[in-house]
Write a protein that binds this DNA or RNA. Structure first.
Lengths: 185, 185
DNA sequence: GGTAACATGTAAGCGGTTACATGATTAG
DNA sequence: CTAATCATGTAACCGCTTACATGTTACC
């Protein structure tokens, strides 16, 4: 076996442990509450990742059961912190790659009757509207963290809000007048 | 063997054949020029898809070599058109799911020295800037198609441009003043 | 006594990418 | 002559999701 190599999800786990998520369960939860907007991870990935990171010496785990309920908590080692920083600085291609069936369907929507096409657009609009609401709900926490010195979670949150709001505006404009859309700034 | 079932990429292929992309090669190219912003597909997917769709009677293929260069072209059958419309109308969950390593890194960037964090932000900014440029380059064609009655490709293009521009603005704001970001409308 | 949340994990399978393999044609 | 583009395909592999399996604890 060569030196262990890690993928992005492994680094996400490593990063989340540093932010206070101690068990696999907490890591999954924290991801849902913070970066879900641009990254997800399932339990089936988290636990193998934790094992891998521990074997590599980037995490230190110990059993800390709650009563009879088994539980293993982790902390990041100095080597783990270095490895995370190293990854964050590492130059690697980071293309923006979205895979969105809804947009694909919208692209082909000229093949539909206009009522169906309008319905599709309405779905995409409400999806973004809902997303804005959930993201706004997270904001107070992120703002507090920002005041305490961690500004980047708020920044990524703002990015998410801004871009769903931008999509909302385009949808509204098109709903009002499908042809006017060409007359853009 | 039960009835063939198709995934999203299969329907993308089916849709592109209807828009005039006749061979596997052309389909791949057309995807790059139109929906690449929210969907990609590789040759290793296109060719098996074409076979599957043909066996199911949704596409009709015939060999049309150019000289000695082998080439197989396809057209959509009426059944194929129905199947596409059916898929477009089908109610299915279409969550907005982005996977973006760059945003993940930005989220964790408080662990970096500020020079490195700023560099990361600059990368994300220029990535969106470049994307806006490439999308704007496609716009004239999409506008012409819109005038000819196909408005939805232009709509999805506008969505892409709008949301990268929104990201750009947030990045610029944060670059100017990282703390001011909380004082948003 | 039941439901929700806590907690950890495995197995199978899907969808997709990368790398490879092959060869023809066109433009410089 | 050589590089770019046209054109089609396969094999191996990776990352991730889904479904499953198991059991505990807290709350109503």
């Amino acid at each position: 076996m060569g030196p262990a190599s890690f993928n992005s999800s492994d680094y996400v786990v490593l990063g989340m442990v540093g932010l206070g998520a101690r068990s696999g369960y907490e890591i999954k939860q924290t991801v849902e509450l913070s970066i879900r907007f641009f990254w997800t991870i399932s339990p089936a990935q988290v636990y193998p990742s934790l094992g891998k990171l521990e074997r590599a010496g980037l995490l230190l785990g110990r059993d800390e059961p709650q009563g009879n309920r088994p539980r293993r908590v982790y902390e990041r080692t100095p080597a783990g912190t270095l490895a995370l920083r190293d990854w964050l600085k590492r130059a690697e291609p980071m293309p923006f790659e979205l895979r969105d069936i809804a947009m694909v369907k919208l692209f082909f929507a000229d093949a539909l009757e206009s009522a169906d096409a309008r319905q599709l657009l309405a779905q995409i609009k409400s999806r973004s509207a809902e997303r804005v609401v959930t993201l706004e709900a997270i904001r107070p926490g992120a703002e507090e963290a920002a005041r305490a010195g961690s500004t980047h979670p708020l920044l990524t949150l703002e990015l998410g809000i801004a871009f769903h709001q931008a999509m909302l505006e385009v949808c509204r404009r098109f709903e009002r007048c499908p042809s006017e859309i060409t007359a853009r700034t």
